[in-house]
């Protein structure tokens, strides 16, 4: 069976930084990434704002990913792309699947940097039909920024966190009309800089205290019924797309069966958005670097 000191699961910002740091500390590192290149969610991010804190430069997500991917490939860490980790076992082995085969690998430590999941429209349970054109911000980014497709022309955006704000800007700056950004709370969420950079220049209509209460349309979405939570009044916003940016949940599916006592085994560490949801990528990188370095320095176990 193959062996590695540190198995890193996920090649996004967290995984790349952890692998780099652990490898620089002299450990044998294997990083597995399910897609065909490292970068993770960064690869869908064509907007700027990445690296301001950590690198002192203003990069797009793709550039930020490229910056670390280049270093990763130059390092001693081994990178396997197109490989999915199917399961982790208590005997410190992982089962991996890829086009080259199904194999087991033994490791001393595992860093789980699997990122996060978006809350889906289905989990929100908004009543109404289930037409095309209702999608999460992440899917919209994937379709538009990776696949070169158009997600929609007249979107309503649900949720005013950073993701919602950035999606609003993406639509607006390419000349599409954002019908409204709706938010249940009494103020816009997200970072101050995103509020300033994404909303004001494009004059995006923001509806606070507002909830989506029904999805309309048979084949394709034609509108969203919204309710003003203060007055209780409802009205219909006509749109051809509903983008949900309703929150992110750490994706810890792989360690679901490893925590009978509710505690992670000592050989498994969580990192990045898989550990907790971060505001900016720079702090993900910084924490992952620290984790990689500290695991890299831990003495070998007998």
């Amino acid at each position: 069976m193959e062996y590695t000191d540190i198995l890193v699961i996920g090649g996004g910002a967290a995984g790349m930084a952890a692998a780099l740091a652990a490898s620089e500390a002299g450990r044998r590192v294997l990083l597995c990434e399910k897609e065909d290149r490292p970068g993770g969610i960064l690869n869908r991010c064509t907007h700027r704002g990445f690296g301001r804190a950590f690198l002192g430069r203003d990069l797009t997500g793709q550039e930020y990913a490229g910056f670390f991917a280049e270093r990763l490939y130059k390092s001693a860490a081994e990178v396997r792309t197109g490989v999915t980790v199917l399961s982790l076992s208590q005997d410190r082995t992982a089962l991996l699947s890829g086009r080259k085969g199904l194999f087991r690998i033994k490791f001393r430590f595992c860093i789980l940097a699997a990122g996060c999941l978006e809350k889906t429209p289905g989990s929100l349970g908004i009543p109404g039909t289930r037409p095309a054109g209702v999608l999460t911000a992440g899917t919209a980014q994937l379709l538009e920024n990776t696949d070169g497709l158009i997600a929609g022309y007249r979107p309503v955006i649900l949720g005013s966190g950073d993701v919602g704000l950035i999606m609003a800007r993406q639509f607006a700056e390419s000349g599409r009309e954002v019908v409204a950004l709706i938010e249940q709370k009494d103020q816009v969420g997200g970072l101050l800089r995103n509020r300033r950079e994404c909303l004001e220049p494009y004059r995006i209509p923001v509806l606070l205290h507002t909830a989506a209460v029904e999805i309309l349309g048979r084949d394709r979405i034609t509108g969203v019924r919204i309710r003003d939570l203060e007055t209780g009044f409802t009205r219909i916003l006509h749109c051809d797309t509903l983008i949900t940016a309703a929150g992110l949940i750490p994706d810890r599916t792989l360690c679901r069966d490893l925590m009978p006592a509710g505690r992670l085994p000592d050989w498994l560490r969580l990192c990045g958005n898989c550990e907790s949801i971060h505001d900016i990528v720079d702090s993900v990188t910084r924490e992952a670097m620290a984790l990689g370095a500290s695991l890299g320095q831990e003495a070998p176990r007998k």
Binding site: T120, T136, T253
Partner: peptide, 10 residues
């Protein structure tokens, strides 16, 4: 599954 196709639809 839980992601409802978000990750595989494309």
């Amino acid at each position: 599954g839980v992601c409802q196709g978000c990750r595989c639809i494309s």
